Amino acid sequence: MAQIAADRIAVSTWSLHRLLGMTYPHDLTTNAIGPMQETYGEGEESLLGLPSVLANHGYHRLEIVSFHLRSRDPIYLGELRDQLKIAEVRLQTLLIDAGDISHPQDGARDQKWIAGWIEVANELGAENARIIAGKQKPTRDALDRSVKALTALADGNAGSPVRLVTENWFDLLAEPAHVHFLLDKLDGRIGLLGDFGNWGGPNKYSDLKSIFGRAELCHAKANFIDGDLDEADYGACVRLAEEAGYTGPYTLIFDSDVPNEWHGLATERDFITTRDV
């Protein structure tokens, strides 16, 4: 099998959370951005400065987690969009990282909150916006609530260039059958972001392969053991995605204490792009 082209590599701000340091936690009862928190220390770089730093490291695709945005003010969003353009970095996805649209009581509230963040994705010029399908146990009622809410969100975003996607994440989509059920019901209105790191157990590889033929995006999370990449697992994940027909970008997800973030990302990137998988 051929090597994977470097232009299919992206980076998530989650993978650089220590570099950024600050987060702005979400409050689902308001659209206001929460007070800054030094969740991962003071940080060394701002989100506005990140596009040029990213480009200097050879990366030209970025995913931004919503809690890394310090403001939803149009002026700030415009500045960030300008910095992305200057650095020639594509904003591949805004990851809307909260909300439970499958919740029987709070689902409507969270749907409205997510809709506001889809507007932010449009203002930033993001290509995609990732929505959590739900966190409830996968009962038929919970799945139906998710389908209804995702359909409404897609209707509200009609005509926009921003593609809405969801992810194989949390209890609602913890196994392939429920991913397929949801996507079938949505009939192409919502895409799939497949994440290597969200599923485990003895059926991990077969389960992931089952959904990756439908994936449009991928979170390529690797495990590191004492600073060394778990090549067997990472290779198996990339290989199954390619064999399933996946042709989209690989967003590098790094979340280990060692090595440092840039080194860990480079290790993941080089594994994907320099080896036949």
Rank of each mutant, 00 (worst) to 15 (best):
A2V: 08
Q3F: 07
A5K: 13
A6F: 13
A10L: 00
A10I: 01
T13P: 05
T13Y: 03
L20N: 02
M22G: 02
T23D: 09
Y24I: 11
G34C: 10
G41S: 05
E42N: 13
G43P: 14
S46D: 02
L47P: 12
L50F: 05
S52T: 03
N56H: 03
N56I: 13
Y59K: 00
Y59V: 06
R61I: 12
F67P: 03
F67H: 06
H68E: 10
R70Y: 12
R72Q: 07
D73G: 00
I75L: 12
Y76I: 11
Y76K: 12
L77H: 11
G78C: 03
G78S: 15
G78Q: 15
E79L: 07
L80F: 14
R81W: 06
L84N: 15
I86Y: 15
I86L: 11
L91F: 06
T93R: 02
T93L: 10
L95N: 10
A98P: 04
D100N: 15
I101N: 06
Q105R: 04
Q105L: 12
D106W: 07
G107W: 13
G116H: 15
E119W: 10
V120Y: 14
N122H: 04
E123A: 09
A126K: 13
E127Q: 12
N128S: 00
R130Q: 01
K135P: 08
Q136H: 04
K137P: 00
K137G: 05
P138D: 00
P138V: 06
T139F: 07
L143Q: 04
R145A: 04
V147H: 05
L150T: 07
A152R: 02
A154G: 11
G156T: 02
G156S: 08
A158P: 11
G159W: 08
S160G: 04
S160A: 13
P161R: 11
R163W: 08
L164P: 02
N168F: 02
E175S: 07
E175L: 04
A177R: 15
V179G: 14
L183Y: 10
D184L: 08
G188T: 12
R189C: 10
G191T: 06
L193Q: 10
G200T: 01
N203M: 10
K204W: 14
S206W: 08
S206G: 02
L208I: 13
S210I: 13
S210N: 05
E216D: 02
H219C: 08
A220S: 09
N223F: 14
N223D: 12
F224M: 10
G227Y: 01
L229Y: 12
G235R: 08
C237F: 05
R239I: 05
E242Y: 11
A244K: 15
A244E: 15
G248F: 15
Y250G: 13
P259E: 12
E261K: 10
H263N: 08
H263Y: 09
G264M: 07
G264A: 07
T267A: 00
D270A: 04
F271M: 03
D276Y: 09
V277W: 00
